[in-house]
Design a binder for these strands. Structure first.
Lengths: 344, 344
DNA sequence: TTTAGCACTCTGAATGCAAGAGTGCTAAAG
DNA sequence: CTTTAGCACTCTTGCATTCAGAGTGCTAAA
């Protein structure tokens, strides 16, 4: 996989990719000859392009059409030819302003907002996976009496999740008793990730406490339900309609398959998880994706974290013909922003 | 607006509507002659259909095509001709099973699930608006100390909303003091709807208490933010891709406009609110809709409530050619179900 | 009042044609 | 040996034409 292409071929490949990204039309030799001012005639370019096709970097929709980059061509472009410019000042301003909308309080809101910004900045569909509840560490549980027979159970994790549920208590409970039970639970569970709070552990707790208090059964139900419920983590989508603007999706059937995918959260989750890594940014071009549904697409993802602990992944999904450079810059920017906003 | 149509015309109109709903093809005189066994030849039917067109109940896409119902035709059908059958046993079973998935705990989950069920039972896109936070009555506010410097503020309404926020307290606060403040607030706000808790009322409270305690500022922030944040109520969508299956949406441009609409929650909210009423079920056919974006669609909505207090609205949005009878039955069924599940 | 018959209209699919874009190849020029 | 000009060839796209099929409206007879 070493670089075997002559300087000139690289130039031409680059020109084709850039041009195709911009116009979505197969690009012909004339166009390349004109755009890359290397003083060569279209005939020469033609020969080189034929070679590039032979080597698998370009493809031809049909004889006598221009060339379009193949998956391999994009890959080579991304790895060797693309220059990553910083965002323009205008972009930078636009982004900051739509992100910094004062301190948003809910973590969900931050994520949701990011999805919106990401999609509108890239004109593609964006996906964001929020912090995973199950990987969060149990911090504490509280029970707040509401009236004689009811109480509010609250469960808090280190990543800022707050789950709650109103429960009916069968008997009245003294403050002291309540306090005792709750602190016992807290002591047992503190620091464990939600993943680690297994049903058997809960049952064990129950055994310890049940003899004394049958009342809190519903508090345990909250715990147990939390475990189940969050199997599928929420994935936020932005700009799902952007995909309709792409000329590669003018076929209703393709659109249907794509939108269908978007409605299946668990699948989206898998796709994102699959693509998340400790690396900076992951780029999956066409067939490099595991999932057959998106093998005509490119997925670019970044991972945001806090104190080296991975929180979630965000990314952009679009046709392989996308503005790689720009999308990468925007994702970088958003990852930075999330890292920062969430460290509070 | 009295019924001026002869028995026979009604029969024919009915046949046309039913047929068109099923096939999505303009229906011609031959088809009607065959399907409605009234022993008339196609020529006779033809004359009647010409009359019905004159009267505005039918329309012709072009000369020498069959007829399709006009908006007025649908309206007449819905008001006078449609017979509402109960759901088939099979449907009934399918619905019950997907609805009764044990007691779901979160109100949001119930709503969300209903959206899914509604869309898949009707093959259309469904919209559901949850209970309106702002119309809920303040029940109580609590502050739960977490550690020395932080506390959890919890806000509870009569419709089961639970809002919470972790706050930093600048100074430590004794249990007693805390209790005093909180119960003062509760006393002042109890029973008011969130709508009625205006900024000025909050400021008044602040004035009363500030002198004593500057610490709780953030608790007030929760209150204030709750007011702002929930301006746009969540609208849940189900089966947005169903619309792609309808032959009337085979144009990418229409699809785009539709999906775009779906991304604009505030608009959806308006549409639903507009269409909600104390009546049982509201049907808006084509141009009867206020919003120009959906004037090629029919919106059928039902309103669910608890103890005569309106909680929210749910509905189905699809092409004017939809299976009115079935959709109405399903919506009725779901409204009943929601009324019941939410009365706990 | 109903019906049979017929001319007429419109759609949609199939076909053919011309223009345009781009290629591949060959032969000449550098 | 590399580059370029020229040219024949291919494929798409848009446009016009044709033709069968479906359905109508009208007229005249039952």
């Amino acid at each position: 996989m070493t670089v075997l292409l002559s300087e000139r071929k690289q130039h031409i490949l680059r020109a084709v990719v850039i041009n195709y990204i911009k116009t979505a039309e197969p690009v012909g030799s004339r166009t390349v000859a004109r755009s890359s001012r290397m003083g060569l005639s279209s005939a020469t370019i033609r020969n080189e392009m034929a070679d590039l096709e032979e080597l698998g970097y370009l493809a031809q929709p049909h004889t006598s059409a221009g060339r379009i980059p193949s998956q391999r061509g994009y890959r080579f472009y991304v790895d060797n030819l693309m220059d990553l410019e910083d965002l323009s000042d205008a972009d930078e301003i636009a982004l900051s302003s739509s992100l910094s909308t004062e301190k948003m309080r809910e973590i969900e809101q931050i994520i949701f907002n990011s999805a919106r910004v990401l999609s509108s900045a890239t004109n593609q569909t964006s996906l964001i996976m929020g912090p995973q509840f199950k990987k969060s560490a149990f911090r504490q549980m509280r029970i707040l009496p509401l009236d004689e027979t009811r109480g509010l159970v609250v469960l808090i994790t280190d990543t800022g999740f707050i789950k709650n549920k109103v429960i009916d208590m069968k008997q009245q409970l003294s403050q002291a008793e309540l306090h005792q039970v709750v602190s016992y639970i807290n002591q047992k569970l503190y620091g464990l990730t939600i993943d680690q709070v297994t049903t058997s552990l809960i049952n064990e707790l129950k055994r310890d406490l049940f003899k004394r208090l049958e009342i809190l059964e519903q508090a345990f139900i909250l715990l147990e339900e939390s475990l189940k419920e969050e199997k599928q983590i929420r994935v936020f989508l932005g700009g799902t309609t952007n995909i309709l603007n792409q000329p590669e999706f003018k076929d209703v059937d393709k659109i249907r398959r794509m939108l269908n995918l978007f409605e299946q959260e668990p699948l989206l989750f898998k796709i994102l998880e699959e693509s998340s890594s400790d690396d900076d940014i992951v780029i999956r071009i066409g067939g490099e994706n595991e999932f057959s549904d998106i093998q005509e697409c490119t997925l670019i993802t970044g991972t945001y974290k806090i104190h080296d602990k991975t929180l979630g992944t965000l990314g952009v999904l679009g046709p392989t013909r996308m503005d790689y450079s720009r999308v990468i810059s925007v994702i970088r920017r958003l990852v930075d922003n999330l890292n920062q906003s969430l460290s509070s």
